[in-house]
Design a binder for these strands. Structure first.
Lengths: 119, 119
DNA sequence: TGAGTAGCTAACAAAAATGTGAGTAACGAT
DNA sequence: ATCGTTACTCACATTTTTGTTAGCTACTCA
């Protein structure tokens, strides 16, 4: 309590882990709230903003938008805008995104076998 | 700003996702800070508290202890205490834990192929 | 002119995750 | 009697994640 830290230990630890194994970056990405569901929905062909929003009860425009932006930055999704009226925007999985979704399905199966016991 | 929420939207959304697919519970578990590294270290036979701590630069006793407790609660790890002097405690993977670690290796490989491009 | 549609964004607030610092137990060695 | 060891635990502070509210654009239809 005597001195202040210049960089938060929180970040130092995060960097330590991310440099130790890229796994930690991957987990951070997909474990963000809504991220995995968004990927699964897009895989099932819910490719538009409004379609995703309709499936994700409780999400706000802003939160959905922020999540999509992060997945695009990670090159897991692409965004295509069509000059129609009103505007149409489609989100799709990249090749790496498609592979990632397969890994998510594996986690899901693991969970069904070992977790599936109430909250 | 006019009214208070009885249950936080945060929790409502979390429950929505966890009920939608067990995947969300699994991700939450393994994406907790240090969790994946702890599992990988135990797989490599760093089974004691002090051994783990020595490998995880920057972690405090309390944080390591909390992480281990959560992994035990999820039945991914077991804890065995030996009445020696001083006390010896060993953490080991359960069967489901061993399977989970395999899935983590897959994620790691995905990351090596597609992320591995600086922070 | 006013309402509706699709898809956003910024500033801020609430909540959860993560970390700190000090303390504990039980025993052996000095 | 005090120190060192291993393996913790508690109350609380900090930082990050997640959500809220109120906007905006650009165009169409009535």
């Amino acid at each position: 309590m005597s001195e202040r830290k210049l960089a938060s230990t929180n970040i130092i630890n995060e960097v330590f882990l991310e440099e130790r194994c890229v796994l930690n970056k991957v987990l951070k990405l997909v474990s963000q709230r809504w991220a995995s569901e968004i990927l699964l929905l897009i895989e099932k062909d819910y490719t538009r903003f409004t379609q995703l929003k309709a499936q994700l009860e409780g999400i706000s425009d802003m939160v959905l938008s922020r999540s999509l932006t992060e997945l695009i930055a990670a090159e897991i999704l692409t965004k295509t805008m069509y000059s129609e009226i009103p505007v149409r925007v489609e989100y799709r999985l990249t090749d790496s995104g498609r592979e990632l979704v397969q890994l998510l399905h594996n986690f899901c199966q693991w969970g069904k076998r070992y977790v599936e016991t109430g909250r």
